[in-house]
Design a protein around this nucleic acid. Structure first.
Length: 353
DNA sequence: AAGACGTGGGC
DNA sequence: TGCCCAAGTCT
Protein backbone atom coordinates (compact mmCIF):
# COMPACT_ATOMS: atom_id res chain seq x y z
CA UNK A 1 0.00 0.00 0.00
CA UNK A 2 1.43 3.38 -0.92
CA UNK A 3 0.67 6.56 0.92
CA UNK A 4 0.27 9.78 -1.03
CA UNK A 5 2.08 12.77 0.39
CA UNK A 6 2.11 15.13 -2.56
CA UNK A 7 -1.30 16.57 -1.69
CA UNK A 8 -0.25 17.90 1.68
CA UNK A 9 0.08 21.54 2.56
CA UNK A 10 3.28 20.87 4.40
CA UNK A 11 6.34 19.93 2.49
CA UNK A 12 8.49 17.31 4.15
CA UNK A 13 10.64 19.98 5.73
CA UNK A 14 7.69 22.00 6.92
CA UNK A 15 6.19 19.04 8.76
CA UNK A 16 9.37 18.46 10.75
CA UNK A 17 9.83 22.20 11.26
CA UNK A 18 6.38 22.56 12.78
CA UNK A 19 6.85 19.51 14.96
CA UNK A 20 10.26 20.71 16.19
CA UNK A 21 9.06 24.26 16.76
CA UNK A 22 6.20 22.95 18.85
CA UNK A 23 8.63 20.71 20.75
CA UNK A 24 10.94 23.65 21.51
CA UNK A 25 8.01 25.32 23.24
CA UNK A 26 6.20 22.32 24.73
CA UNK A 27 8.63 19.49 25.45
CA UNK A 28 7.88 17.58 28.62
CA UNK A 29 10.63 17.68 31.21
CA UNK A 30 11.59 14.06 31.88
CA UNK A 31 14.41 12.55 33.95
CA UNK A 32 15.92 10.68 30.99
CA UNK A 33 15.58 13.49 28.48
CA UNK A 34 18.03 16.13 27.33
CA UNK A 35 15.94 19.31 26.94
CA UNK A 36 15.76 20.82 23.44
CA UNK A 37 18.34 23.56 23.01
CA UNK A 38 20.64 22.02 25.58
CA UNK A 39 24.23 21.30 24.63
CA UNK A 40 24.25 18.18 26.77
CA UNK A 41 24.96 14.89 25.03
CA UNK A 42 22.51 12.07 25.79
CA UNK A 43 23.99 9.07 27.62
CA UNK A 44 23.13 5.98 25.51
CA UNK A 45 22.90 3.89 28.68
CA UNK A 46 20.25 6.14 30.18
CA UNK A 47 18.39 6.44 26.88
CA UNK A 48 18.32 2.65 26.52
CA UNK A 49 17.31 2.14 30.16
CA UNK A 50 14.41 4.56 29.80
CA UNK A 51 13.24 3.07 26.51
CA UNK A 52 13.13 -0.43 27.98
CA UNK A 53 11.28 0.73 31.09
CA UNK A 54 8.81 2.69 28.97
CA UNK A 55 7.82 -0.33 26.87
CA UNK A 56 4.07 -0.66 27.45
CA UNK A 57 4.50 1.36 30.64
CA UNK A 58 3.47 4.90 31.54
CA UNK A 59 5.85 7.77 32.20
CA UNK A 60 4.47 8.16 35.72
CA UNK A 61 5.15 4.52 36.57
CA UNK A 62 8.69 4.61 35.17
CA UNK A 63 10.04 7.78 36.78
CA UNK A 64 10.83 6.34 40.21
CA UNK A 65 12.29 3.14 38.83
CA UNK A 66 14.54 5.05 36.41
CA UNK A 67 15.86 7.18 39.24
CA UNK A 68 16.58 4.20 41.50
CA UNK A 69 18.22 2.13 38.76
CA UNK A 70 20.50 4.87 37.50
CA UNK A 71 21.58 5.89 41.00
CA UNK A 72 22.31 2.31 42.00
CA UNK A 73 23.87 1.29 38.67
CA UNK A 74 25.22 4.51 37.07
CA UNK A 75 26.89 2.81 34.09
CA UNK A 76 26.25 -0.21 31.92
CA UNK A 77 29.31 -1.86 33.47
CA UNK A 78 27.81 -1.42 36.96
CA UNK A 79 24.58 -3.02 35.82
CA UNK A 80 26.39 -5.85 34.06
CA UNK A 81 28.14 -6.68 37.34
CA UNK A 82 24.94 -6.67 39.41
CA UNK A 83 23.41 -9.76 40.97
CA UNK A 84 20.41 -11.10 39.07
CA UNK A 85 18.27 -11.21 42.22
CA UNK A 86 19.01 -7.56 43.02
CA UNK A 87 17.95 -6.42 39.55
CA UNK A 88 14.80 -8.53 39.57
CA UNK A 89 13.85 -7.23 43.02
CA UNK A 90 14.47 -3.64 41.93
CA UNK A 91 12.17 -4.21 38.94
CA UNK A 92 9.38 -5.65 41.09
CA UNK A 93 6.10 -3.84 40.52
CA UNK A 94 6.97 -2.52 37.07
CA UNK A 95 5.68 -5.59 35.24
CA UNK A 96 6.70 -7.50 32.13
CA UNK A 97 9.57 -9.09 33.99
CA UNK A 98 11.22 -10.52 30.88
CA UNK A 99 12.37 -6.94 30.40
CA UNK A 100 14.43 -7.11 33.58
CA UNK A 101 16.03 -10.40 32.60
CA UNK A 102 16.81 -9.00 29.14
CA UNK A 103 18.03 -5.73 30.65
CA UNK A 104 20.72 -7.60 32.52
CA UNK A 105 21.53 -9.83 29.55
CA UNK A 106 21.80 -6.76 27.33
CA UNK A 107 24.09 -4.92 29.74
CA UNK A 108 26.36 -7.95 29.90
CA UNK A 109 26.35 -8.27 26.11
CA UNK A 110 27.30 -4.61 25.72
CA UNK A 111 30.23 -5.16 28.10
CA UNK A 112 31.30 -8.52 26.67
CA UNK A 113 30.76 -7.87 22.97
CA UNK A 114 31.00 -4.09 22.56
CA UNK A 115 33.63 -3.06 25.09
CA UNK A 116 31.08 -1.47 27.38
CA UNK A 117 29.79 1.02 24.82
CA UNK A 118 26.41 0.76 23.16
CA UNK A 119 26.64 0.29 19.38
CA UNK A 120 25.58 3.42 17.50
CA UNK A 121 23.63 1.82 14.68
CA UNK A 122 20.18 0.35 14.48
CA UNK A 123 21.19 -3.10 13.23
CA UNK A 124 23.68 -3.77 16.01
CA UNK A 125 21.29 -2.41 18.64
CA UNK A 126 18.52 -4.62 17.28
CA UNK A 127 20.66 -7.70 17.93
CA UNK A 128 20.81 -7.02 21.69
CA UNK A 129 18.47 -8.88 24.09
CA UNK A 130 15.20 -7.09 24.71
CA UNK A 131 15.86 -4.57 21.95
CA UNK A 132 13.24 -4.80 19.21
CA UNK A 133 12.46 -2.65 16.19
CA UNK A 134 11.15 0.24 18.24
CA UNK A 135 13.89 0.42 20.87
CA UNK A 136 16.71 0.00 18.35
CA UNK A 137 15.36 2.87 16.27
CA UNK A 138 14.64 5.06 19.30
CA UNK A 139 18.13 4.65 20.78
CA UNK A 140 19.75 5.21 17.37
CA UNK A 141 17.80 8.44 16.93
CA UNK A 142 17.83 9.83 20.48
CA UNK A 143 21.26 8.75 21.69
CA UNK A 144 23.18 8.78 18.40
CA UNK A 145 21.38 11.36 16.27
CA UNK A 146 20.59 8.97 13.45
CA UNK A 147 17.53 9.55 11.20
CA UNK A 148 15.90 6.27 12.20
CA UNK A 149 12.21 5.71 11.54
CA UNK A 150 10.76 5.24 15.02
CA UNK A 151 7.23 3.90 15.38
CA UNK A 152 5.61 3.41 18.76
CA UNK A 153 1.93 3.48 19.74
CA UNK A 154 1.92 7.30 19.95
CA UNK A 155 3.48 7.78 16.56
CA UNK A 156 1.22 5.11 15.08
CA UNK A 157 -1.76 7.11 16.22
CA UNK A 158 -0.41 10.47 15.03
CA UNK A 159 0.48 9.18 11.57
CA UNK A 160 -2.60 6.98 11.15
CA UNK A 161 -4.73 10.08 11.74
CA UNK A 162 -2.61 12.59 9.85
CA UNK A 163 -2.53 10.37 6.77
CA UNK A 164 -5.98 8.84 7.41
CA UNK A 165 -4.70 5.29 7.34
CA UNK A 166 -7.70 3.06 8.03
CA UNK A 167 -6.01 -0.30 7.74
CA UNK A 168 -6.36 -2.15 11.07
CA UNK A 169 -3.28 -2.74 13.22
CA UNK A 170 -0.95 -4.52 13.15
CA UNK A 171 -1.16 -4.66 9.34
CA UNK A 172 -1.13 -0.85 9.23
CA UNK A 173 2.32 -0.74 10.76
CA UNK A 174 4.11 -1.08 7.42
CA UNK A 175 2.15 1.75 5.82
CA UNK A 176 2.62 3.96 8.87
CA UNK A 177 6.35 3.46 8.77
CA UNK A 178 6.42 4.16 5.04
CA UNK A 179 4.44 7.34 5.57
CA UNK A 180 6.72 8.51 8.36
CA UNK A 181 10.06 7.72 6.70
CA UNK A 182 10.10 10.69 4.28
CA UNK A 183 9.14 13.06 7.10
CA UNK A 184 12.16 12.31 9.31
CA UNK A 185 14.54 15.29 9.21
CA UNK A 186 18.29 14.93 8.83
CA UNK A 187 18.75 17.47 11.62
CA UNK A 188 17.53 16.73 15.17
CA UNK A 189 16.04 13.30 14.44
CA UNK A 190 16.08 12.48 18.16
CA UNK A 191 14.07 15.57 19.07
CA UNK A 192 11.73 14.84 16.16
CA UNK A 193 10.98 11.38 17.53
CA UNK A 194 10.45 12.60 21.06
CA UNK A 195 8.30 15.45 19.79
CA UNK A 196 6.04 13.04 17.95
CA UNK A 197 5.68 10.94 21.09
CA UNK A 198 4.90 14.02 23.19
CA UNK A 199 2.35 15.02 20.57
CA UNK A 200 0.69 11.63 20.75
CA UNK A 201 0.75 11.62 24.53
CA UNK A 202 -0.57 15.13 25.03
CA UNK A 203 -2.40 16.39 21.91
CA UNK A 204 -3.23 13.53 19.57
CA UNK A 205 -4.58 11.42 22.43
CA UNK A 206 -6.65 8.23 22.03
CA UNK A 207 -9.78 10.00 23.27
CA UNK A 208 -10.71 13.67 22.88
CA UNK A 209 -7.65 14.77 20.91
CA UNK A 210 -6.87 18.48 21.18
CA UNK A 211 -6.86 19.11 17.44
CA UNK A 212 -7.35 22.85 17.89
CA UNK A 213 -3.84 23.26 19.29
CA UNK A 214 -2.09 20.66 17.16
CA UNK A 215 0.93 22.04 15.28
CA UNK A 216 0.18 19.91 12.20
CA UNK A 217 -3.62 20.15 12.13
CA UNK A 218 -3.57 22.18 8.92
CA UNK A 219 -3.01 19.15 6.73
CA UNK A 220 -4.28 16.40 9.03
CA UNK A 221 -6.64 14.27 6.97
CA UNK A 222 -8.56 13.09 10.04
CA UNK A 223 -9.06 16.54 11.54
CA UNK A 224 -12.70 17.34 12.10
CA UNK A 225 -13.91 13.81 11.54
CA UNK A 226 -16.39 12.65 14.15
CA UNK A 227 -14.74 9.24 14.14
CA UNK A 228 -11.17 10.40 14.61
CA UNK A 229 -10.95 8.44 17.87
CA UNK A 230 -11.47 5.30 15.83
CA UNK A 231 -7.96 5.71 14.38
CA UNK A 232 -5.79 3.77 14.41
CA UNK A 233 -8.18 0.84 13.97
CA UNK A 234 -7.34 -1.92 16.42
CA UNK A 235 -8.32 -5.59 16.40
CA UNK A 236 -11.13 -6.76 18.66
CA UNK A 237 -10.14 -7.96 22.11
CA UNK A 238 -10.65 -11.50 23.26
CA UNK A 239 -12.36 -12.45 26.49
CA UNK A 240 -10.07 -13.16 29.42
CA UNK A 241 -10.46 -16.53 31.13
CA UNK A 242 -10.75 -16.78 34.91
CA UNK A 243 -8.11 -18.79 36.73
CA UNK A 244 -7.71 -19.82 40.35
CA UNK A 245 -4.71 -20.53 42.48
CA UNK A 246 -3.46 -21.01 46.00
CA UNK A 247 -0.47 -19.48 47.76
CA UNK A 248 1.07 -20.74 50.98
CA UNK A 249 1.95 -18.64 54.02
CA UNK A 250 4.67 -20.63 55.74
CA UNK A 251 6.07 -18.84 58.76
CA UNK A 252 8.80 -19.89 61.19
CA UNK A 253 10.91 -17.94 63.67
CA UNK A 254 9.92 -14.58 62.25
CA UNK A 255 10.66 -15.64 58.70
CA UNK A 256 8.51 -16.46 55.69
CA UNK A 257 9.27 -19.11 53.07
CA UNK A 258 9.77 -17.59 49.60
CA UNK A 259 10.52 -19.32 46.33
CA UNK A 260 11.87 -18.12 43.01
CA UNK A 261 9.64 -18.65 40.01
CA UNK A 262 11.00 -20.36 36.89
CA UNK A 263 12.69 -18.09 34.35
CA UNK A 264 10.03 -18.73 31.73
CA UNK A 265 6.37 -17.89 32.08
CA UNK A 266 4.38 -15.63 34.37
CA UNK A 267 6.43 -13.54 36.80
CA UNK A 268 9.48 -15.43 35.53
CA UNK A 269 12.56 -15.15 37.72
CA UNK A 270 10.72 -13.29 40.47
CA UNK A 271 10.52 -14.11 44.17
CA UNK A 272 7.08 -15.39 45.11
CA UNK A 273 5.02 -17.13 47.73
CA UNK A 274 5.03 -20.88 47.16
CA UNK A 275 1.90 -22.31 45.57
CA UNK A 276 0.44 -24.57 42.93
CA UNK A 277 -0.43 -24.09 39.30
CA UNK A 278 -3.13 -21.61 38.33
CA UNK A 279 -6.02 -23.49 36.72
CA UNK A 280 -9.50 -22.86 35.40
CA UNK A 281 -11.29 -24.43 38.35
CA UNK A 282 -11.65 -22.94 41.85
CA UNK A 283 -9.24 -24.28 44.46
CA UNK A 284 -10.53 -26.24 47.45
CA UNK A 285 -9.56 -23.59 50.00
CA UNK A 286 -11.48 -21.03 47.98
CA UNK A 287 -14.68 -23.11 48.02
CA UNK A 288 -14.37 -23.99 51.71
CA UNK A 289 -13.41 -20.42 52.59
CA UNK A 290 -10.51 -21.74 54.63
CA UNK A 291 -8.06 -19.18 53.25
CA UNK A 292 -6.62 -16.36 55.37
CA UNK A 293 -6.64 -13.82 52.53
CA UNK A 294 -7.72 -13.56 48.91
CA UNK A 295 -7.08 -11.27 45.99
CA UNK A 296 -8.48 -10.82 42.50
CA UNK A 297 -5.78 -9.72 40.10
CA UNK A 298 -6.10 -8.95 36.41
CA UNK A 299 -3.28 -9.94 34.08
CA UNK A 300 -3.06 -9.18 30.40
CA UNK A 301 -4.58 -12.41 29.19
CA UNK A 302 -6.38 -13.86 32.22
CA UNK A 303 -7.90 -12.91 35.57
CA UNK A 304 -6.67 -14.66 38.68
CA UNK A 305 -8.27 -15.30 42.05
CA UNK A 306 -5.47 -16.19 44.43
CA UNK A 307 -6.27 -17.63 47.86
CA UNK A 308 -3.72 -17.57 50.67
CA UNK A 309 -3.67 -20.52 53.06
CA UNK A 310 -1.55 -21.14 56.13
CA UNK A 311 0.99 -23.89 55.58
CA UNK A 312 3.08 -25.89 57.98
CA UNK A 313 6.35 -26.79 56.30
CA UNK A 314 8.11 -25.91 53.07
CA UNK A 315 8.36 -28.60 50.42
CA UNK A 316 11.43 -30.72 51.05
CA UNK A 317 13.78 -32.73 48.94
CA UNK A 318 15.14 -32.35 45.42
CA UNK A 319 11.68 -32.77 43.93
CA UNK A 320 10.42 -29.58 45.54
CA UNK A 321 9.48 -27.11 42.83
CA UNK A 322 11.95 -24.25 42.74
CA UNK A 323 14.53 -23.12 45.22
CA UNK A 324 13.45 -21.30 48.33
CA UNK A 325 14.69 -19.17 51.18
CA UNK A 326 13.58 -18.07 54.63
CA UNK A 327 13.00 -14.33 54.42
CA UNK A 328 12.71 -12.14 57.55
CA UNK A 329 9.19 -10.79 57.90
CA UNK A 330 10.61 -7.50 59.15
CA UNK A 331 12.15 -6.82 55.72
CA UNK A 332 9.50 -8.39 53.53
CA UNK A 333 9.04 -5.18 51.57
CA UNK A 334 12.63 -5.51 50.34
CA UNK A 335 12.06 -8.99 48.93
CA UNK A 336 10.92 -7.56 45.62
CA UNK A 337 7.64 -9.43 45.34
CA UNK A 338 5.50 -8.80 42.26
CA UNK A 339 2.34 -6.78 42.79
CA UNK A 340 0.14 -9.88 42.84
CA UNK A 341 1.78 -11.15 46.04
CA UNK A 342 2.20 -7.71 47.55
CA UNK A 343 -1.55 -7.17 47.21
CA UNK A 344 -2.27 -10.53 48.77
CA UNK A 345 0.00 -9.84 51.73
CA UNK A 346 -1.48 -6.36 52.15
CA UNK A 347 -4.88 -8.02 52.32
CA UNK A 348 -3.64 -10.40 55.00
CA UNK A 349 -2.31 -7.53 57.08
CA UNK A 350 -5.60 -5.64 56.78
CA UNK A 351 -7.70 -8.52 58.04
CA UNK A 352 -5.26 -10.47 60.17
CA UNK A 353 -3.60 -7.49 61.85
C1' DA B 1 1.87 -14.99 13.47
C1' DA B 2 -1.10 -14.86 17.12
C1' DG B 3 -0.52 -15.34 21.94
C1' DA B 4 2.27 -14.69 26.18
C1' DC B 5 3.70 -11.34 29.04
C1' DG B 6 2.14 -6.87 34.39
C1' DT B 7 0.65 -2.98 36.19
C1' DG B 8 -1.59 1.43 37.33
C1' DG B 9 -4.27 5.26 35.91
C1' DG B 10 -8.01 7.67 33.41
C1' DC B 11 -12.64 8.11 32.38
C1' DT C 1 -17.22 -0.89 37.76
C1' DG C 2 -15.00 -2.22 34.02
C1' DC C 3 -12.73 -1.21 29.89
C1' DC C 4 -9.06 0.95 27.49
C1' DC C 5 -4.63 2.14 27.27
C1' DA C 6 0.87 2.86 27.74
C1' DA C 7 7.94 4.93 24.48
C1' DG C 8 6.97 -3.57 22.72
C1' DT C 9 9.52 -8.00 22.57
C1' DC C 10 9.81 -12.77 22.06
C1' DT C 11 8.41 -17.12 20.28
Amino acid sequence: MSVQTSDTIDTRQEFAARILDWYDRSARVLPWRVPPGSNAVPDPYRVWMAEVMLQQTTVAAVAGYFERFTVRWPTVADLAAADDADVMAAWAGLGYYARARNLLACARAVVAEHGGRFPDNEAALRALPGVGDYTAAAVAAIAFGQPAVVVDANIERVIARHRLIETPLPAAKRGIKAALAPLVPAARPGDFVQALMDLGAGICTPRSPACAICPVMADCRARGRADIERLPVKPAKKAKPQRHGVAHWIERDGCIWLVRRPEKGMLGGMRALPGGEWSGTPVESELSESGIAQVDHGFTHFDLRLTLVRGETPPEGPDAAGEGEWWPLSTLDAAGLPTLYRKLIDRLRETDG
